[in-house]
Amino acid sequence: MGIAILCQIPRAEKPWFLENIGLNIYSAEELGYFICNNLSLVDESIVCEGLVEWVKAELKQPRLALKLHQILNGPYTERDFILAFLKETSYMNSKELAALDQQLQELTDKPQAVRLKKKADTLMNHGKYNRALKYYQEALVSEDKGGHGTQFRGTIYNNLGCVYARLFLMEEACEYFRLAYEDIHTLSVLKSYLFSIFMKDGEKVYRQKLDEFGVDEKSRIKLAEEIASVQMPDMPENLDASLEQWTAAYHKSTDL
């Protein structure tokens, strides 16, 4: 059975801008929801004096602001800050808070490389590709991998390939898919590589690569069917407007 929660904190007139994903937040509950669903993005861009000021000025919560300020000025962890905030907003009950606390603890206990990868994954899901690239690269060079080996590295390469492909940087995408396939010998990764080759160099090179990687006949037919199933998009009625929209979306994803 569902429930309804009483909102006890007024909505803000001026939003808090979540820099990581370029999102305006207008209420304590929105921030609570964002945090709960994007724990890996909780960093110094949220746990900061700027947010404390916003809580005081816009959410009209001077007592909570003072509490958060005191946490920031002591030997604090991001977990302390987040839990103090969520507890006061009444967005979650004690059981949910306890579960979240455990998730925060588990995340904190993970090696730095894993935390960076999770952060990059989340940013990629939000379409923030340039930022995702940064954290994937940091994860690759991080010395704290906690014993994670080639599979972990291959996954990051694969994800880097995906990010570059979404940015239409096919040269880089092909390179990372190739590196990913070296670490993870799965058909899924190979398919990503081959499709990116198709998009970058055309069908002829794609066929050469099929031979080069020894793709069997059954898999070739399956890949061909998949390529054939891709539908050509309809030409928009207002091309200029669509172009503007696509450009804006691209810029948003690249922070340009």
Binding site: G2, A4, I5, L6, R11, Y91
Partner: peptide, 12 residues
């Protein structure tokens, strides 16, 4: 006047 947030509810 109050504001509420619904969790798995479609009616009041």
């Amino acid at each position: 006047d109050i504001e509420i947030i619904l969790d798995q509810m479609e009616s009041l």
